[in-house]
Design a protein around this nucleic acid. Structure first.
Lengths: 212, 212
DNA sequence: CCTGGATCTTGCCAGTGACAAGATTCTCAC
DNA sequence: GTGAGAATCTTGTCACTGGCAAGATCCAGG
């Protein structure tokens, strides 16, 4: 076997995503990843200063990929600004369901407490896209009486909250529903405050499923 | 010094809340708590099987206290069902801001992944109260066209998402606002979909401030 | 070839959680 | 009271983790 692993950094990120998806973020250890990949226990140190740095990188990638997916969802929703806005949120929830590891990394306290310029940039880009969606929707007549910043905060809160609620069985169990996807659709309809007549298509995903 | 600490369990929970509020949940260690309280490193083991058990207990207390605070808020909001519903959500956000340690415990993945009957009961009671608020509000004419379960999920998501957003500087920094409380009020107004004419009073809290 | 940098290994240390065995204190039936 | 048993706490130990340091190996460019 080659002394160099070849692409250890990528392999670490991939393996970490698998571990998180299967056994949760608390079960993620640098030494465990090293064992899984057949390298020495200090090898990850060459690519990630510490555990937190790896999680931050995962979160950064998570923001980027979710953003891509949200934009694709908006594109698939057609020209109507409100439908596009709804698709942004719906796609984010879908992404969270399909990629629990990235979603958990994004929302993990250890990641949020850390200041990382790249990560902050990724988060800002995410919010900026949502802001644009809100602005365009509002320009087309959607809730003109509400301040943009308020609508943006509401949108972020609704997206994050819905995603957290519907990706965790601890919460879905307390609701009297069987079809989580349908509930997500309904909740998103309440968020955009429209009748349930037009449901935008949801793209198929993704990372977790691909690696499975 | 007495061999028995007297009330180690309570002291551990209190000390844990302080540590979480000051340095985050990741900095919480059983041995560290033992040192702070001047007992041996294995003393906490008599009251909590492991770190997770302590976090679950904190989360349970968090649900109970937040629920008390929400009910008090609803009571203070007067007889109007929609105003009471709004007060439930607004009070929860306020509680999260005033008691970050409990809020973080409630939403920590390590806690959510664990099955604990007491904790599950506390969570169920929390959801039940919100459900009752939704039902009464709907009975008074609020959004009769939407299914109860959908409104409930939307309400939970909005409350949790808003709380998470407004208690974390990582998120508040990306918004163009200075008054977080005013933003919380505005967002809650969007949630209940009312004009910003009547703002219910917010009770003073809290746990963290008391212990500070 | 050979030199510097990137990558990886081995070895080490302190801190943590968890367990076991024993000491101390409390509770309560008798 | 008093003695048995439960609750509480201590000491000791082990495996595991993160992090650091020093050195070995590989790679790229002059």
């Amino acid at each position: 076997m080659a002394y160099h692993h070849g692409n250890l950094k990528e392999a670490l990120l991939e393996c970490a995503a698998d571990v998180i998806a299967e056994r949760g973020i608390e079960a993620l250890t640098l030494r465990g990843l090293a064992r899984d990949l057949g390298v020495s226990h200090a090898a990850p140190g060459a690519h990630f200063a510490d555990r937190r740095a790896l999680l931050c990188e995962l979160a950064k990638v998570g923001f980027q990929r979710s953003l891509e997916f949200m934009r694709a969802g908006a594109e698939a929703a057609g020209p109507d600004p409100v439908a596009r806005y709804r698709a942004l949120g719906r796609s984010y929830v879908q992404f969270a369901q399909d990629n629990p590891s990235y979603f958990r990394a994004i929302n993990h306290p250890e990641v949020e407490a850390h200041l990382d310029d790249d990560l902050r940039g990724a988060r800002a880009a995410w919010v900026a896209t949502l802001r644009e969606g809100v602005e365009v929707a509002q320009a087309s007549g959607w809730h003109p009486e509400i301040e943009v910043e308020t609508l943006l905060a509401f949108s972020c809160a609704a997206a994050m909250g819905t995603a957290q609620l519907l990706t965790d069985s601890v919460w879905t169990d307390v609701f009297d529903v069987d079809d989580v996807d349908a509930l997500a659709d309904s909740v998103l309809d309440v968020v955009v405050h429209r009748s349930r007549t037009s449901v935008v298509p949801i793209l198929e995903e993704t990372e977790e499923k691909r690696s499975a």
